[in-house]
Lab assay of single mutants.
Amino acid sequence: MDVFMKGLSKAKEGVVAAAEKTKQGVAEAAGKTKEGVLYVGSKTKEGVVHGVATVAEKTKEQVTNVGGAVVTGVTAVAQKTVEGAGSIAAATGFVKKDQLGKNEEGAPQEGILEDMPVDPDNEAYEMPSEEGYQDYEPEA
């Protein structure tokens, strides 16, 4: 019985440690998101679009440190934060509304985080759909 109880105690310690790591990862992701939003706020009209992409990228980098179902929630929060940063930029006159959601080359930025393969159960990952990809044929 002692062996059984000791095993359960060790398992509990492992769960607590994993929860603490997840909590730490979420806190880091939130900190990076805040950094990115402050970065966007300090940019001029020309830099705002690039700044919004930076927020998304920093958040995406930190999301990889967070495991399990938390990833889905962090990704949703990050996307809403990026959308909010863009709205703030438009409201303050840093950028025109028609410039939001495009990178410096004018290509749409939507789907940055949505296409990231995420499995809350950590069982399997699927690649994003290939609808947006084109076949590449090298020139002879």
Rank of each mutant, 00 (worst) to 15 (best):
M1T: 15
M1D: 00
M1F: 14
F4T: 09
F4M: 11
M5F: 00
K10P: 06
K10R: 14
K10W: 01
A11L: 04
K12M: 15
E13Q: 07
V15W: 08
V15M: 05
V15K: 00
V15Y: 06
V15G: 09
V16L: 05
A18E: 05
K21Q: 02
T22E: 00
K23E: 01
Q24W: 15
G25A: 15
G25C: 08
E28I: 10
A29G: 13
A29C: 15
A29N: 08
K34Y: 09
G36E: 02
L38P: 01
Y39V: 11
V40H: 06
V40F: 11
G41W: 05
S42Q: 10
S42M: 07
S42P: 12
K43C: 12
K43H: 06
K43P: 00
K43M: 09
K43E: 04
T44Q: 00
T44C: 13
T44P: 00
T44K: 00
K45C: 06
E46G: 02
V48D: 01
V48R: 13
V48W: 13
V48E: 00
V49P: 03
H50Q: 14
G51I: 15
T54Y: 04
V55C: 09
V55A: 06
K58H: 06
T59W: 06
T59F: 09
K60C: 02
K60N: 02
Q62H: 13
T64C: 05
T64F: 04
T64S: 10
T64H: 09
N65S: 08
N65D: 09
V66G: 04
V66P: 00
G67T: 06
V71K: 11
V71Q: 02
T72E: 09
T72S: 15
G73D: 02
G73A: 07
V74M: 15
T75S: 08
T75E: 05
V77R: 02
A78W: 10
Q79D: 01
Q79K: 15
K80R: 12
K80E: 00
K80L: 14
K80D: 02
T81H: 07
V82C: 09
G84W: 08
A85K: 02
G86T: 10
G86F: 08
G86W: 15
I88F: 13
I88P: 01
A89L: 09
T92W: 10
G93K: 15
F94R: 15
F94D: 00
K96R: 06
K97Q: 15
Q99C: 09
Q99D: 01
L100M: 04
L100D: 15
L100N: 10
L100G: 15
N103Q: 07
N103H: 06
E104S: 14
E104T: 07
E104Y: 11
E105W: 03
A107Y: 02
A107H: 12
P108A: 11
Q109F: 03
E110W: 01
E110H: 05
G111Q: 04
I112T: 04
L113P: 12
L113G: 15
E114I: 15
E114N: 13
E114G: 03
D115G: 14
D115F: 13
M116C: 06
P120A: 09
D121K: 11
E123F: 11
M127F: 12
M127W: 10
P128V: 02
P128I: 07
S129E: 04
E130Q: 03
E131M: 10
D135Y: 06
Y136S: 04
P138D: 14
E139R: 13
E139G: 07
A140I: 00
A140G: 05
